[in-house]
Amino acid sequence: MKRIGLIVVILCGAVLLYATRDFPAWGDPASPASTHVSPHYIEHALQETEVPNLVTAVLADYRSYDTMFETLVIFGAGVACFLLLRSFGARRREGWYVRHIPTGVVIHFRKRPRIPHSRFFERLDTEWVPHDLIIMTICRILLPFIQLFSLYVVAHGDFSPGGGFQGGVMFGASLVLMAISFDLRTALSRVGERILALLAFLGVVLYGGIGVLCMLLGGEFLDYSELAKILPVHAEEARALGMIGVEVGVGIAVTAVMAVIYVNIASAGRHDEGL
């Protein structure tokens, strides 16, 4: 099998390397990719949409139909992870571990104990017991800044590198960091499963809703210039505002789906303990 694989790979690579002879040279401004539609984007996007970041303009305006379905694909991935892994049955286990925080003593229970909700006791994971004050403190300090920066990336995506996908992934990563540095239960008690599902849905609906709103105002689906009828701005600025709305929808959906994927995989669908 390995030898056959190697032969296939070498043949395939040789064909592709031979094909590079017909490719445009590195950095050629007259290459086919840069000649047809892209000059129009570069020269007219600012005039038509008032957005200096051309990547955002193309992503959320000229190709917004494509981006909507990309968001739907991500939502679908989150739903697939949930349906594949989520299980509500209790795990068979050898016991429960509770730590008395002031003394650091760990108590083992054979049956499920009633842990009092106080700051002196905390439940521990059975398989792996991370308890590092340095990591927890540093992450507690860092988390708000990471989340603030991700919101900045979403909100400033029209003017600088950024947008809904990047900001959403960063915010989702901050939730994952919380689940890693504390434990899964802490993260889920802050942002529960139902809220995550609702957020993922809300993001996609926000995107589609802006599109439908444009239709209701008499334009085509996702033609943001129609929003000028209800907003006190020009048609071009309305397109920029429509882009921000859409990016916020993308950001919310991506955040929620990243967290859903991590939580389901880390705990194998049980949502009780995991890395």
Partner: peptide, 9 residues
């Protein structure tokens, strides 16, 4: 940009 996020998903 979209391909990266979709590949993560």
């Amino acid at each position: 940009l979209t391909a990266i996020v979709v590949s993560v998903a």
